[in-house]
């Protein structure tokens, strides 16, 4: 059986481990990590990803650029994407939604909130 695979894109190691430990409570899922937009683009063709959780503010290729790529790509365009960003970047979140993000989360958030959002896509 293929496990539901979530790709986490965040340049913070601590943030990624926090997300991983939260997501692991869901049980039968697989989590793949990427440290930035670059890594995410490398991971995508190699892993069968079912959901992307991405931070926005990252060097070089940011979360919005990644999202824009996913939505414009024939292979990945249906892939659900949840954008995670820090409060105060409302403009960026609005952009994310207009680019086709399925959901957004504002840091700091409760783990339950994240789980609730993710469960919608399982």
């Amino acid at each position: 059986m293929k496990l539901f695979t979530i790709l986490i894109v965040d340049d913070s190691t601590a943030m990624r481990s926090l997300l991983v430990s939260t997501l692991e409570t869901l049980g039968d899922i697989r989590v793949v990590q990427a440290a930035n937009g670059f890594d995410a683009l490398r991971v995508l063709p190699r892993e069968q990803v079912d959901l992307i959780l991405t931070d926005i503010n990252m060097p070089d290729i940011n979360g919005l650029e990644l999202l824009s790529f996913v939505r414009n790509n024939q292979v990945y365009k249906e892939l659900p994407v949840i954008v995670i960003s820090t409060e105060g970047s409302h403009k960026d979140i609005e952009k994310g939604l207009s680019l086709g993000a399925n959901e957004y989360l504002v840091k700091p958030f409760q783990p339950e909130k994240l789980l609730e959002l993710v469960k919608r896509f399982l």
Partner: peptide, 23 residues
């Protein structure tokens, strides 16, 4: 911008971990 991003990441991180003063 790199300096900004450092402060930005720290804010987000500290917030997530509940260290509000740092955030």
């Amino acid at each position: 911008n790199a300096i900004f991003r450092g402060a930005h990441s720290l804010k987000g991180l500290a917030g997530m971990f509940g260290f509000t003063i740092i955030s």
